[in-house]
């Protein structure tokens, strides 16, 4: 199968971009575990690991060492691996890719990985939880960027022609953009709750939780509306349908994980205490189930952000006219696809 766009002389940039995105997701999981286990300071030096060059740290000491040190050092190694993949991506893009903006974005990706690594290092050097929170917010943003970048390099991206920004397209584009803002805001709220500094008052935490809940409902309602609009107006455009379905499923899982996270961390609320399961529920601190539930909530949040960005990219590609692309008008109300731009019609595969 040929992977690569007409503007690229090789399929390798796209392959590197996919590997970059795929390697970033486990990095987010492990980063989430570091916060869940409060293991950020398990290795108190940086960029060295207990005085050793990070890559020369004895493997057996790492594997047999304490759990928090295992995940913190593992997070650093995985981060380095992502950095190397970003370098490989840059080499490949600069050798094979003709489009200047993709070359620029490849450099941005590399700089972003480096910045994220430095940010993580500064968090350790200054033992600063605020930096940990910024590091925790920047990671998912980079993951979303990596996913979008892989999408830009895909052959389908070049094949899709830009359409005209008519009313329905405008609405979907706006909804997609708002979805990205809401999901990222949700992520920041969640990170603020996870990286609590000791001096935060109960009232402030209450506000954070309430906003997190309200925003969760807003996202759920928003994605439902977006799903309905896309299904109604572009029922055969898989480039829009797949991401919107993905976000919808992920949000459903995320809502359940959110409830689960609260329960495994703080127990059931008082109003369900008449049921025996709630009245007798015992929280097991740092247990496997607690840590995995909480970390999964973090990781799925990143996945939702990435899927939302993907949806926005696909929407913008289809509805924002560009100079280079043919932009024939079409009516969004026509559902047969015959009068739509070739990109939209081409994807109507069932």
């Amino acid at each position: 199968m040929h992977v690569g766009s007409p503007n690229s002389i090789s399929p390798w940039p796209a392959r590197w971009a996919i590997v970059l995105a795929c390697a970033t997701f486990p990095l987010i999981w492990v980063g989430g575990l570091v916060t869940t286990y409060d293991a950020g300071m398990a290795v108190p030096d940086w960029p060295t690991t207990y005085g050793h060059n990070m890559f020369a740290y004895p493997v057996l000491d790492w594997l047999r060492g304490p759990w928090d040190m295992f995940i913190e050092h593992g997070h650093r190694l995985l981060g380095s691996l992502v950095g190397m993949i970003a370098i490989g991506l840059n080499v490949s893009v600069f050798r094979n890719e003709r489009r200047g903006w993709l070359r620029v974005l490849a450099v941005v990706a590399l700089l972003a990985v480096i910045s994220q690594g430095v940010l993580g290092g500064m968090r350790v050097r200054f033992d600063n939880r605020q930096l940990a929170m910024i590091h925790g917010c920047f990671g998912p943003a980079f993951f979303a960027f990596a996913v979008a970048y892989a999408c830009f390099l895909s052959p389908d991206w070049s094949k899709v022609s830009a359409g005209r920004l008519d009313r329905s397209g405008q609405r979907i584009l706006r909804l997609s953009a708002v979805l990205v803002v809401l999901t990222y805001l949700q992520l920041i709220l969640g990170a603020s709750m996870r990286h609590l500094t000791s001096q935060i008052s109960p009232d402030f935490f209450r506000i954070l939780v309430i906003f997190h809940l309200i925003n969760a409902l807003a996202i759920a309602a928003h994605i439902a509306v977006l799903r309905v609009r896309i299904a109604a107006n572009f029922p055969r455009v898989l480039g829009l349908l797949l991401p919107v379905r993905g976000v919808l499923y992920l949000v459903s899982v995320q809502l359940a994980l959110g409830v689960g996270t609260w329960v495994v961390k703080y127990g059931w609320p008082e109003w369900v205490s008449n049921w025996d399961f709630a009245a007798g529920y015992l929280i097991a601190a740092k247990s496997h189930s607690q840590s995995m539930t909480v970390t999964a909530h973090v990781a799925i949040g990143s996945l939702i952000l990435a899927a939302s960005v993907l949806l926005l990219a696909q929407t913008a590609r289809r509805f924002l006219p560009t100079g280079a692309s043919p932009s024939r008008p079409y009516s969004a109300d026509r559902r047969d696809g015959a009068n739509r731009p070739s990109g939209l019609a081409m994807e109507a595969v069932r």
Partner: peptide, 14 residues
Amino acid sequence: EGIPGTAMPSFKVL
């Protein structure tokens, strides 16, 4: 042991 039915967890892992 923690306190069942409250937010006080069991710290058996420590």
